[in-house]
Computed example of a mutant assay.
Amino acid sequence: MKYGYIRPIVSDQQCTQQVNELVIDTLFKETHGLARKRTELEHLLMTVQKDDELFIQNIAVLADSLQQLLDILRLAERDQFTIHFVDEQITNQTIQKASLLQSATFFADLQSKFLSHSSTFSLQAAKQQGKSIGRPRKTDDNLQLAFAMYDSKSYTLYDIKETTGISKSTLYRYLDDRATSLSDGKE
């Protein structure tokens, strides 16, 4: 049997570009891109048997971490089925034939893909739940006080931080924003 597995990923959140050119007997599709509750993947891994083939667009679709990938590769070896990674043009058998340098480079790139995928979908889920993302902005009154202290040239950056709670790097970022908005307003 030929199986396919798709799920939303950063570069294809609607799953329209995954394994659509392949002839597959059964396709398993997750409804979300989050790492938890991947019920279709679990169902697929319980279904696949010896000599079956599993087609995945890329490794980031299948796994959310190197440990999860390793677990799935061990399962594939034990149950004797083949996983084809379309984008990478490899299978679970050809991964083992690469040199150490090729493997290290490959897995370092893969780790950054996992992190990008995880953070993107976690942020989207938080936004959908109405949670605010990122650091809260400093209050305008506090920021104006920091600007006044800085502009007076009577206070050190340490004094400004102690009084307003705004760090040096944050103050400089706000000062840059202020300078940009002032120059945009003059043009």
Rank of each mutant, 00 (worst) to 15 (best):
K2Q: 12
I6R: 15
R7N: 09
I9C: 09
Q13I: 12
Q17V: 03
Q17R: 08
E21A: 09
L22R: 00
L34I: 14
K37H: 12
L41F: 13
H43A: 09
L45N: 07
M46Y: 06
V48T: 15
D51K: 14
L54W: 10
A60F: 03
V61R: 15
L62H: 05
A63N: 04
D64G: 08
D64R: 03
D71F: 06
D71N: 09
I72S: 05
E77K: 12
Q80F: 09
F81L: 06
F81W: 05
H84T: 10
V86H: 05
T94D: 03
I95A: 01
Q96E: 00
K97H: 01
Q102M: 08
S103M: 11
A104R: 15
A104F: 15
T105K: 14
F107G: 07
D109I: 07
S118P: 00
T120A: 03
K127D: 00
R137H: 11
R137G: 10
D141I: 13
N142V: 15
A146E: 07
F147S: 04
M149G: 03
D151T: 08
S152F: 11
T156N: 05
T163M: 07
T163H: 05
I166Y: 12
S167Y: 11
S167F: 13
S183G: 02
D184Y: 06
G185F: 07
